[in-house]
Design a protein around this nucleic acid. Structure first.
Lengths: 109, 109
DNA sequence: CGACATTACATAGACAATCTATGTCATTAA
DNA sequence: TTAATGACATAGATTGTCTATGTAATGTCG
């Protein structure tokens, strides 16, 4: 089944939401979670994921710390911050607003 | 009320859908229709609109002809072609697919 | 009559955000 | 000891929107 790219402007929201739901995850797990919950429709490339995580760190919306996976590999674990949660709410409401607006344009008569 | 930009990747679909519904419209009317039906949430800038119309013309998805508005101004009137309608269907189904996938990620538990 | 706002189309360049391609390093498996 | 995999990372290409600007024609108002 053909996978789709993440629509520009939604990646940060999807990462924040995934961390909000998932608690403490490293990069790979975040990408996997997005792919799985989308039922394989969406796929996050690593070249999009890691720069996005850096942006979110820099904004203070997520916090990260180095650790080890169960398979004993180094990995950076992230969790969403209080400010990140506020930001998530902002992005969610903006997304819904736009989404509904597009829906009104698309809906027949 | 603050307006939002058109999400990247959706403008062509919105134009095609507007022409599908509206019949024969010129550029300005298309932009107005999108803004109105979105209840003023979305706004298409001219710098986005006209290049998009050129793309669609080039692809053969819309056809255009010069005419006069009711106020006697020159304007280019567009209508959607058969190929454009096929393309619209493609873009609609892709949009819904992605939209639903994002919905699954966002929905609580 | 002349200045100005408005309508409508158009283009160049800026900018944002994703992707592709590539690379590194460490661990586990063959 | 080599190969495959997991995990992170960056550079550069690409795409598509926006901002800013410009032209031209019509209608309006002092």
């Amino acid at each position: 089944m053909s996978q789709e790219a993440i629509p520009p402007g939604t990646l940060d929201m999807l990462i924040l939401q995934t961390l909000f739901r998932g608690g403490r995850l490293h990069g790979f797990e975040i990408a996997e979670a997005i792919q799985e919950r989308s039922e394989d429709v969406l796929r996050v490339e690593e070249g999009s994921l890691y720069p996005a995580l850096q942006r979110l760190l820099l904004q203070g919306w997520i916090a990260g710390e180095w650790g080890k996976t169960e398979e004993n590999r180094r990995a950076r674990y992230y969790k969403i911050t209080r400010a990140g949660h506020t930001q998530l709410e902002r992005e969610l409401s903006r997304y819904r607003r736009v989404s509904n607006a597009i829906g009104r344009i698309l809906q027949p008569v």
